[in-house]
Amino acid sequence: MAEPWSMERLARELRVSESTLFARFKEATGMTPAQYLKRTRLGEARRLMVVHGDTAARAASVVGFRSASHFSRDYREAYGRPPAADAVAARAQLALATAV
């Protein structure tokens, strides 16, 4: 997940053109490959913070974000609050759900 990638390399490995890969991927997921990767990375970072207690900086680094500010901005856009605040709230919600 944190490894660099390119549409060119992925298309070559799948033996299709970049435009075919892009079109088929978007048709199947409703997202571009870059959007899908970002969503997947953010979801994994959230899991690392909530379940494992990782810091936002550590989680961001593990999933491939090179900039903490970029990660924070994308995370807030996806989850509606800053990474640390969201992780605290999600852990509390998880604790309530498991206590029942």
Score class of each variant (00 low, 15 high):
R47D: 08
E44N: 06
S19W: 14
R58L: 14
R73G: 01
S17R: 12
E18W: 13
Q35K: 11
M49L: 07
A34N: 00
T29I: 00
L48Q: 04
H70Q: 13
F22A: 14
A56G: 07
A56T: 01
R24N: 09
M49D: 10
A45C: 02
T40E: 11
V63T: 07
T55C: 04
F22K: 03
T55F: 10
R66E: 14
A57L: 11
R39A: 15
S61I: 01
A59M: 10
H70L: 11
S67G: 10
S61M: 08
D54C: 11
G64V: 02
A60S: 10
V50G: 14
R47V: 00
A68T: 13
G30D: 12
F65K: 06
R58Q: 13
V51T: 09
A59E: 11
R24V: 06
R66I: 04
V16N: 06
T29Q: 06
A34G: 03
V51Y: 08
K38R: 14
F71S: 09
A23W: 06
V63Q: 12
T29H: 03
V62G: 05
A56S: 13
A45L: 01
A60H: 04
R15N: 14
G30C: 08
L21K: 05
V16R: 10
S17F: 11
R66M: 05
V16C: 13
V16Q: 09
